[in-house]
């Protein structure tokens, strides 16, 4: 180093033009304000290579300053390997911005692979966000106790199934189900056993219905099933089968004894006048009322608005 300085000190002086050019280039790379070209020989300023150098240094200053400030909009046009590195960084940061916007829109498939440790952190973040979102979705659409869909899911499934049935003129039926004397179960055996009854019944309903059917906890001890592509007669058969299966259930109490339960089911189907799936649910509910009034532990139907 020292030796180098000595050699430099002994070096013969440069021609003034060259000295000025060197100072100008060094100034372009180091000074906060770009040096003027006033002191440079006019002949030099007219040279094409000088114009190219000037443009390149100017773009270099610009993109470097922009990146330093965190501004990513400045797309400079000069080329070359030095600028390419900075442009590459700028481009990657712009990709990252876009990818983050996509994540904000719910696209958790976005992955980053250009920033080492940061990439790992970003990818882990999107992965975790996806998991949280799935958990939230589950919490929002499933009943916490019975782990079958809740009323919110019913609304979505019901609306879709109704639309499909209408457009394809396919049959669509619904079952409204209610555990008989559920309050008595709670009062006699306690709420924990009451919960067991609900969970057991939910499992039974899932087993008794087809994959294409949908069952939800409607609230309290009420359950609803939607049966796509199913005419009333077939829905009645399903309801009878469920009713019979429930009769066979044995629920264990704390002291080891068992007791049985029964349910009442109301069945309804789509009719041409219906405006929404809730019209079918309403008829099923009326049918359920009939089942309760006529002694419980049975299936009743309402074929359409007028006909019992």
């Amino acid at each position: 180093m020292e030796k180098n300085k000595e050699t430099m000190a002994k070096a013969p002086p440069l021609a003034p033009d060259t000295q000025q050019l060197l100072e100008w280039v060094y100034g372009m790379l180091t000074l906060p304000t770009a040096p003027t070209t006033q002191n440079l020989p006019p002949a030099l300023l007219q040279q094409e290579p000088f114009a190219a150098l000037q443009a390149n240094l100017k773009d270099l200053r610009e993109i470097s300053a922009s990146l330093g400030r965190g501004e990513l909009q400045n797309l400079v046009t000069s080329k070359g390997i030095v600028l390419a590195g900075l442009k590459g960084l700028q481009s990657n940061l712009r990709h990252l911005t876009w990818q983050t916007k996509m994540v904000a829109k719910g696209d958790f498939s976005q992955q980053v692979d250009f920033l080492g440790e940061f990439s790992d952190a970003f990818n882990e973040m999107t992965h975790k966000l996806q998991r949280y979102q799935q958990q939230m979705q589950h919490l929002a659409s499933y009943d916490a106790l019975t782990q079958i869909p809740n009323r919110l899911s019913l609304e979505q499934f019901g609306a879709d199934a109704f639309k499909k049935a209408q457009s394809s003129e396919a049959p669509l039926s619904a079952l409204m189900m209610d555990i008989d004397h559920f309050k008595l179960v709670n009062d006699t055996y306690g709420h924990a056993i009451g919960d067991t009854v609900l969970v057991t019944l939910a499992e039974l309903l899932r087993e008794q219905l087809r994959i294409s059917d949908f069952v939800a906890r409607y609230g309290g001890e009420e359950f609803v099933a939607i049966l796509p592509n199913t005419p009333l007669a077939a829905a009645l058969q399903t309801a009878q089968r469920i009713c019979a299966a429930v009769r066979k259930l044995k629920v264990k109490t704390d002291n080891g004894t068992t007791f049985g339960i029964t349910i009442s089911i109301g069945v309804g189907q789509i009719i041409p006048q219906d405006k929404a799936y809730t019209d079918i649910i309403e008829r099923s509910d009326q049918a359920l009322y009939l089942a309760k009034m006529s002694g419980r532990n049975r299936v009743c139907q309402i074929a359409d608005g007028n006909n019992l």
Binding site: G80, I81, L83, A84, K87, S91
Partner: peptide
């Protein structure tokens, strides 16, 4: 194409 492998960038950039 505003940047290209051929002009030093390691990726092609299109406006």
């Amino acid at each position: 194409e505003i940047d290209c492998w051929c002009t030093g960038a390691r990726t092609c950039r299109f406006l």
